[in-house]
Design a binder for these strands. Structure first.
Lengths: 324, 324
DNA sequence: CTGAAAGCGCTTACAG
DNA sequence: CTGAAAGCGCTTACAG
């Protein structure tokens, strides 16, 4: 049988109230009484039932995390940042995905109503913002990790997409490249517009090709440009995956990187070190974004008022061989 | 204020007992009564508090997952498999890491005692097996995803490491390669011994080099072999990351892959498609291992007795350019 | 400084 | 088929 607060109380010869007080160090308790209670707790190996505590206190000391998918290359770092921060604060982390579309969302919403967690960190699944906004208005604390460039009415963590694009352009310009191609992601993403805008603020003369963030998309786009005889000396791809496709297409066509064409990616996923040649890229501080989001949520739960603007974490240009 | 079972009971003009019965469809309830209750539930948007249900029932309808790190390349697939299965069964998934060593383990153990979850899926953090065994003996249902080749006394999911090694050897042999080097992982891992044993069962004449599963380790090992003038026509690396290091070292030394040296990895992480040349590798069914582990745990929680042996999922050789 | 009692929101014998 | 009551393991006014 599990050890309960009643067992401790009986064994220590005090009331449950007193035991509760020493556990939570609230209210005055006589020193020697407290010592005795603590001793009994240790001896019995008593640990309060999280469920019972949650029910009595009306909170679960757990935060939820909702992500579209766990298999994206930067998701591991992000999750690690969130988990570390949450665990350090002695909270639990309940993980949800939206793999099965509407059904997942339904299930997730039920968990919200069931009060399974106190607050939510979310990497926005497509077309969920309005639903999340409703939950937030109904009182659920939410922090959004915003990779799409939305601007929700609740707190969020973003990176400097505009400046990231600008830094890529400055780097290419300094290396004497003046005829760049920008291979974007889907242009309805805010982050895509920002990256492009930043790049253009430095290098206005750009050939823009809309991509889809996939390796295959990058490869095909590059093959088409080469077939069309477009002249360019550099490529800025909006993520590393599509940059990998670009590298492959260039190699297949006999173009040398970086001699003939310099290539810059975005994200700095683990693969970026291992492409041929290793990829120069604009690093997103993924892990720190996770940490920041979790910290914001926790301090919100702790009663601190949240900042009204998004928390902005800086990108960083990582120079490797593809664009020295 | 949140809607409780009492609100529903009052509104429907029945007792809480009856409401509980229609929610859980247990016990006989008059058809029209049930219909009325269901209507009120829908109208009020009532969702049972998971905390209260858990307390009353003595279980939380949540499973825990413990992993050493979230940033390993195959962890995303594994997690996705677990999460999907767990969510489909209407359970929650509580995620724990062991980033901070002993402190993490302590915190984790507390959660166990707090009954925060009903069972555990674990990818074993180093040196935790005996502790997990204790928890299991104390009554916690556990399923191990065993990437180390331990053989715990509780249920586990493994892949065919021996056969995977053998399949790599058969493939190289069929391609006319007879002087292989095997770059292993740390040799105290059971999986490493199995992969090597399988390989040797087909190609006994092997040069074995102990590696450490890192890209750098793979690169350095290969550089040393080349410097030593060792003659070989193929490499079987025990994971893809170190295979990537091997590829890089070979390229730097001017050896052509696969013409001069064929290279086979293990795992089939996302990067394997993107190395130069793309990597032939022994695929671990990572996602399905996650699914299998979750299924075993859930059926155990559901009362089904668990199989005594480990569940074995087959590897699969994926042929790409590095060893056609 | 300490305790009896009510309450958190459910489930489950037990009685009818 | 239905309900009153006890109980799950805590916390928290309230009273002393």
């Amino acid at each position: 049988m599990r050890v309960t607060i009643a067992d401790v109380a009986r064994e220590a010869g005090v009331s449950k109230t007193t035991v509760s007080r020493v556990i939570n160090t609230k209210g005055e308790v006589d020193g020697s009484t407290a010592a005795r209670v603590r001793e009994v707790i240790a001896q019995l190996g008593y640990v309060p039932s999280s469920g019972a505590v949650g029910l009595a206190r009306g909170s679960s000391r757990t935060v939820g995390m909702l992500v579209p998918s766990l298999t994206w290359p930067w998701m591991g770092e992000l999750l690690q940042g969130v988990v570390d921060t949450v665990e350090a604060a002695d909270y639990g982390l309940l993980l949800f995905t939206c793999n099965r579309g509407a059904e997942s969302v339904q299930r997730f919403t039920t968990q919200v109503s069931a009060r399974a967690f106190d607050g939510l960190v979310v990497v926005e699944p497509e077309n969920t913002l309005s639903h999340l906004t409703t939950l937030h208005r109904d009182g659920l604390p939410i922090v959004l990790i915003d990779d799409r460039g939305h601007h929700p009415e609740f707190p969020s963590v973003v990176t400097t997409n505009h400046e990231g694009g600008a830094s890529a352009a400055r780097h290419l310009l300094a290396a004497g490249r003046s005829r760049p191609v920008v291979l974007t992601g889907p242009q309805h993403f805010g982050c895509v517009r920002d990256r492009l805008g930043g790049f253009r603020s430095v290098l206005p003369e750009v050939r823009v090709v809309e991509g889809d963030f996939t390796e295959l998309g990058g490869r095909l786009a590059m093959e088409r440009l080469l077939a069309d005889g477009v002249a360019f000396d550099s490529v800025f791809a909006h993520n590393d995956i599509s940059a990998a496709g670009v590298l492959r297409a260039l190699r297949a066509a006999g173009r040398r990187v970086p001699d003939d064409v310099a290539v810059v990616g975005f994200d700095d996923i683990p693969m970026a070190e291992h492409t041929e040649p290793p990829l120069t890229t604009v690093r997103q501080p993924t892990r720190r974004m996770g940490e920041a989001a979790a910290r914001m949520l926790l301090s919100h739960l702790g009663g601190t008022s949240v900042p009204d603007g998004p928390a902005v974490l800086p990108t960083e240009l990582v120079v490797r061989h593809s664009a020295p």
